[in-house]
């Protein structure tokens, strides 16, 4: 069981505050989605969790121990970075062999099996892999690592729709076989919304929300109709986003619908629709 505690963590680069006093408790054996716009601080957060960079203030604690230069803790986290950090001239198979040296739990048979499924040629050199296959190669290393914590930074970058679908299915199968803590940082929110259990949303270096996807979506909806009627409906409600198209307006309301709302909607002839995670995300981070 590995829980991750991010305690009052800030990271400053020159004049930029990449992360600003972030507190997050990550429970073990769940699949999390780390969501944020470009430059929100997602990668910085993942880098801090794996001791690749050091916090300006605060600390990251895993299972009661600080990660700072802690090999025991770090040996149990696998980080699939978005950038390629592997030697370009090396062949995929050799890199998998080395991975086994650093992560004794690495499952070579499973890695070979996945490589065959995805059509990844183990004899190829890292530098000759396409963007999609470079992602597949790193994602396979992460899935086969068998560590208690696996972090994915944009795992499906450059993958076609079929391969993305395969990746998510393999990830779920992997998790079901041996539950672990997985954090997936991604831009493709709608795709992961059914895969992740909880969403962590960060904006401009600050945590703005950490909630189960189901709760998040049952606590938000879209209301639409003629502009003045929608305006009347959303009065006094927590509205997080508005779109106008001529005399038509749709608004995202960040509250659960109650019976009174339903009656009011009927009266005003405005319609309800489900709020999708992507929509809620855009509205919250705009």
């Amino acid at each position: 069981m590995k829980t991750i505690q991010i305690k009052g963590v800030s990271k400053v680069y020159g004049h930029t505050k990449a992360l600003d006093k972030v507190d997050i408790d990550i429970e073990s054996n769940r699949i999390y989605g780390l969501l944020g716009r470009n430059g929100a601080g997602k990668t910085t957060l993942l880098n801090l969790m794996t001791n690749r960079i050091f916090p300006t203030e605060g600390e990251v604690i895993i299972d009661g121990e600080r990660v700072y230069e802690n090999d025991k803790v770090l040996g149990n986290i696998f980080y699939m970075a978005e950038k390629n950090l592997y030697p370009e001239d090396e062949r995929v198979r050799n890199i998998y062999k080395w991975t086994k040296e650093f992560y004794p739990s690495f499952d070579m048979v499973y890695a070979e099996d996945l490589s065959e499924k995805f059509g990844l040629d183990l004899k190829k050199k890292v530098k000759s892999l396409s963007t999609g296959y470079a992602s597949i190669f790193k994602a396979i290393a992460a899935l086969a690592s068998n560590t208690d914590i696996v972090l994915f930074d944009e795992p499906v970058l450059g993958l076609d729709a079929n391969h993305r679908d395969m990746f998510y299915k393999e990830l779920i199968a992997n998790y079901s076989e041996r539950p672990k803590t997985m954090i997936i940082s991604t831009h493709l929110i709608e795709e992961v919304s059914s895969v992740i259990e909880e969403a962590i949303i960060i904006k401009e270096g600050k945590l703005i929300l950490k909630q189960s996807v189901e709760e998040l979506l049952s606590g938000a909806y879209v209301v639409s109709g003629e502009t003045s009627r929608v305006d009347k409906y959303i009065q006094g409600k927590k509205c997080i986003g508005i779109e106008v198209l001529g005399s038509f307006k749709s608004a995202t309301v960040f509250e659960a619908v109650n019976n009174k709302d339903k009656v009011l909607a009927e009266e005003l002839q405005v319609e309800f629709a489900k709020a999708e995670l992507q929509k809620v995300f855009i509205d919250l981070t705009n």
């Binding site: 769940r30 779920i172 079901s176 059914s194 895969v195 259990e197």
Partner: peptide, 13 residues
Amino acid sequence: TEISVKYRINPAT
């Protein structure tokens, strides 16, 4: 497990 993999839904769900 089969259900979650086939429909790509979180095993907890």
